[in-house]
Simulated scan of single mutants.
Amino acid sequence: MLNEARAMDRAAGRFPKVQVAVAPPATLLWRTREAVELIGVGGQDCHAKDSGAFTGDISATMLKDAGADFTITGHSERRTLHGETDADVKAKSESALAAGLSVILCVGETEAERDAGRAVDVVSGQLEGSCPTVDGAAEKLSIAYEPVWAIGTGRVPSIDDVAAMHAAIRERLVAIYGAAGAEVRILYGGSVKADNAAELLAVPEVGGALVGGASLTAESFLAIVGAAASLNAD
Rank of each mutant, 00 (worst) to 15 (best):
L105V: 00
A112G: 11
T85A: 05
A91Q: 12
K64Q: 13
T80E: 09
A112I: 06
I159Q: 15
V120S: 14
A68D: 04
H75Q: 09
R118Q: 15
S124W: 00
H82G: 02
I104P: 02
L101I: 02
G67H: 07
V148L: 12
R79M: 08
L101P: 04
E146T: 01
E111T: 01
D57M: 12
A167R: 12
A138Y: 12
T61A: 15
D115R: 14
T80F: 04
E111V: 03
S124I: 04
G67W: 06
L81P: 00
A116F: 05
A96W: 01
V107K: 02
R155Y: 08
A167S: 14
V122A: 11
W149S: 08
L81Y: 11
L105M: 15
H75N: 09
G56R: 09
R118A: 14
E94G: 07
V103N: 07
V156T: 15
R155S: 13
T61C: 12
T80G: 00
A144D: 04
R118M: 13
D57E: 15
T80M: 06
W149V: 05
S95F: 00
T71S: 13
E113P: 02
H47K: 01
G125K: 09
D65L: 12
G117K: 07
A112M: 07
Y145D: 07
T73C: 14
D57S: 14
G100N: 11
L63M: 08
E109N: 01
S51T: 10
A96V: 01
K140H: 15
L81K: 10
A91H: 07
A99C: 11
V120E: 15
S142Q: 11
D69Q: 03
S59Q: 08
V148F: 06
A167E: 13
K64F: 10
V122P: 02
I169M: 06
A163Q: 15
L97R: 07
R170T: 10
G56P: 10
F70C: 03
L81F: 12
R79Y: 06
I104G: 02
L105R: 00
A164T: 14
I143F: 09
S51D: 08
G43D: 03
V148A: 10
C106Q: 01
E111I: 04
S102Y: 09
D45T: 14
T71Q: 05
F70E: 03
D69H: 13
R170P: 10
I151H: 04
R114A: 14
H47I: 02
V156C: 10
A167K: 12
A96I: 01
A163T: 13
T73L: 01
T85W: 04
T85E: 05
P147D: 03
A98R: 14
A167W: 02
T55W: 06
S95Y: 00
A60T: 04
R155D: 13
R114C: 09
H75L: 06
D45R: 05
L127W: 04
D135I: 03
T61I: 13
V89N: 14
A168V: 05
G108T: 02
L81H: 12
D135M: 03
K49S: 12
K49R: 13
S130C: 10
G129H: 10
V120P: 01
A138H: 11
D65Q: 14
A87F: 00
D160W: 01
L81S: 09
A96C: 06
A53W: 01
L141Y: 11
L97W: 07
V107F: 02
